[in-house]
Design a protein around this nucleic acid. Structure first.
Lengths: 261, 261
DNA sequence: AAGTGGTCTAGACCACGCT
DNA sequence: GCGTGGTCTAGACCACTTT
């Protein structure tokens, strides 16, 4: 069914030898990771152009003084990031431009990073209350059990962009409002020893109520983006349930997907 | 800052020996993948309960007659899926319930799978036209170059849920409208030898115009979910640009994130 | 036929979490 | 100190793509 024979233009292998990789065997950072970082940097800087290259894992490992599995591990990590593509009988290529920075997946990281930076955050509420039914179910605590309810208003350039409501098991940690205004929730949680592992998100839309509209500087009925999220730590226990509202006129979710083979 | 000492309840290792793994060395499917599948099945069926287990990679490899790297590769693939967690000095645990099926990430797969199933699809337009500015930029073709424009209306339970507009380089493949009504676009592309590799998505919201409202059976001004996507094949070339509109009252995006360490 | 990545082995030592 | 996963090695054979 394919029409044009416009096949993967495989550029002849460029002078890869020009690249000098510096490996420090005494460093605590693993060799495969050192190699991966330097390969990624070379790709980012355009030294490794889209097309063919990285010829031959065996040669590479010999030239670097590493074993092949170690080199493979480095390459594999960049394949997982979507920067490289492997083909049997062909070789390993840098993916053809586009795709830039993999965006580290969706808003979880957005929020996480952006929180401490340009935007400002105002803590509107920070209380411990008995859990309502839906919250209890999401957090896996008994109904009526104590949960921290956190309401925040986030602005960028002085304009409101989002109403963030988060629920956390009250036993998990103390939330310092002052600290939450200068950094993101996830940073606070992380520095309390809570390591996030996964999250389940639902993104939808609906019209703004009068109350939401006034707080977000919108008209009643304006389109809002909604997001619900339950986040789990590395044991699989729920550690956060969030219901967020974003001004659709000022915010959208932007993320990249990789198709797993 | 952490309050409660409610630490990862590590269940004593259950009788793992009861599990019998069947490995077929003559099969074309890799040993690590056979093992991973059987481990995943055991987790799914609850035979491997959340808590501690899988004790000791070395023992496991001996008992299975595999080398440790092979066993590690199997385990690693499940860790990447979010089903297992490894801890140094502790062991490998099944993640504590929740998290069910990792949902294969966002709507790309949703559309991909759901397309051929419950929902029905009506091809409203399937033409080859010169590319407008934004389309040309997204697809990396010259402005005015030929692109296929595909408009579809998708329904579930007889009700409209989405207006799908897709642009593809006209040279890429012929799109058979009849076939598109019985299966998804990605299936058609795949069977034409186009293997998707990655996609960049933007999800937002806005109010419905009069025209959109009438086609979607909504009121003018109703909240709509919008999605723009550019998809790339495994060489990094854009193969699809899409602008989709969903009825927020009938559809939302649902997906899971894994936090990479 | 030659060259590539894909899989697999049987060891080794280290870093970390626990007790 | 002990047991765990984390890293690394130096080979081997196979499957696939290209010439």
């Amino acid at each position: 069914m394919a029409k044009s024979g416009d096949r993967a233009r495989t550029t002849a292998a460029p002078a890869l030898g020009a690249l000098d990789f510096t490996l420090d065997r005494s460093s605590p950072v693993p060799l495969y990771h050192q190699l991966a970082q330097q390969l990624e940097a070379a790709i980012e800087r355009g030294v490794l152009a889209p097309g063919n290259l990285l010829g031959n894992e065996v040669d590479l490992s010999v030239r670097l003084g590493l074993s092949r599995p170690t080199v493979r591990q480095a390459i594999q990590s960049l394949v997982d990031k979507g920067l490289l593509v492997r083909r049997r009988g062909v070789g390993t290529q840098v993916v053809h431009s586009q795709v830039k920075r993999p965006l580290e997946l969706s808003s979880l990281y957005d929020d996480l990073e952006a929180a401490g930076q340009g935007p400002t955050t105002e803590v509107v509420r920070n209380d411990i209350l008995p859990a309502a039914c839906d919250v209890a179910a999401a957090l896996g605590v008994p109904e009526g059990g104590e949960v921290t309810v956190l309401d925040r208003l986030r602005r960028t350039h002085g304009r409101p962009v989002a109403l963030l409501r988060n629920y956390l098991p009250a036993s998990l940690l103390d939330l310092d409002s002052t600290r939450l205004e200068s950094t993101g929730l996830y940073r606070v949680m992380r520095s309390a020893g809570i390591t996030l592992h996964s999250a389940r998100q639902t993104v939808g839309a609906r019209a703004a109520t009068a109350g939401e509209a006034s707080r977000l500087d919108e008209e009643e009925g304006a389109a809002l983006l909604t997001m619900q999220r339950t986040a789990y730590d590395d044991t699989g226990r729920p550690v956060e349930y969030a219901t967020h509202i974003y001004r659709a006129s000022h915010y959208s979710f932007d993320f990249q997907l990789l198709v797993r083979p």
